[in-house]
Design a protein around this nucleic acid. Sequence first.
DNA 1: TTTGAAATTAGGTGCTA
DNA 2: TAGCACCTAATTTCAAA
Lengths: 153, 153
Amino acid sequence: MLKLDELDLKLLGLLQADSKKTTKEYAHRLGLSTTAVYERIKRLEKNNVIDKYVALVNKKAVNKSFLVLCHVKLVQHIKEFVLQFERQVQQLEEVTECFHISGDYDYILKINVSDMEAYRDFMVTKLTAIANIGSTQSSFVINEVKNTTAISL
Amino acid sequence: MLKLDELDLKLLGLLQADSKKTTKEYAHRLGLSTTAVYERIKRLEKNNVIDKYVALVNKKAVNKSFLVLCHVKLVQHIKEFVLQFERQVQQLEEVTECFHISGDYDYILKINVSDMEAYRDFMVTKLTAIANIGSTQSSFVINEVKNTTAISL
DNA sequence: TTTGAAATTAGGTGCTA
DNA sequence: TAGCACCTAATTTCAAA
C-alpha cells in the first residue's frame, strides 16, 4: 500500500473535484513545481490510487433523471444462484450501482431511467426476469440532496 | 435541451469510460476527424451535457472502503426541519450520497469510512447529532456488485 | 495546417537515511 | 552514498483556431 503524504491527499482532493485543470494550476495550489506535481500524479496513477478519469454527464441533459433505489430479496442463498443474480445485474445498463447488504433485504440497486414508464418496463422485462428474485421494494428518489464521487481524505 | 445524435451518445460513452484519451483516439473510434470530435466535446461541455471531469480514487488505497447505506426517518416533516437536515447532511464529509426517497424511510445515505469504528464514531458524533432524526437503520455493504458513474445512453 | 500552450522528459541539486 | 523529491530548462505533443 502506497504511503500518501499531506500533499498527495490535497492533490487527490483537487483531482477529484476537477481533473482537467493544468498541472501548473495544481502546482500553484500546492506550492510545488509542475514537474513535482506531474511526478506525484504519475505515481498515484501507477499505484492505482487513482482508478481512472471520467466525464460526469448531466442526467437531465440525457433524459435519465428518474432515479429509483430498489431493494431486492432473493428466494434462496445458494452460492450458484447468488452469483448468477449478480452476474445478470451487472449486465443491466439501467443499474449503475448494486450492493449486497446486511439486513432485511439482500441487495440494493440504483436505477437510472427516463421516467416511470421506463422504470416499469425495466422491472417487468429485465429485473424480475432474473431467476431467484423473491421480492422487491422500490423507493423513488424525490430529491438528490447530495451526490458526489469525491471521497473525503 | 440540446439534441444529441448517435455520435454524441457514443462519444459520451467513451468519455464516461475514460476522459483522458486523446481527441485523436476518440476520432478514430467514431470515424471522425479530430476537429469534429473536438467541436462536439466543446459543445457538450458548453451545454452542460458534460458536468465535469473528475479523477476516481481507489477507496482501498485511501482506506475508505467500509461502505454503509443508512436509512433515516425524520420525526417531523416541517419544511424548516427538513431543509435543516438536508443542509447539515451535505456538510458531512463521510456522506457521498443522500437521497430523499418515497417509502417507509425518508432518506437513504451512502457513507464511506475506514472501518466499523469510524462508522460508529460518525453515527454517534455526527449523524445522530443532527436534530429531528427519528430513527436510523444501517445496512452494511458486504459486496459491491456494480458501481459505475457511467450512465447508459 | 499552424501556433501556442501544456504535457513530458532530461539533467542537476540538495536533503535524508 | 544511494535514493528520493524537488527544481529549471529543453523538448515533444496536443488542443485550439
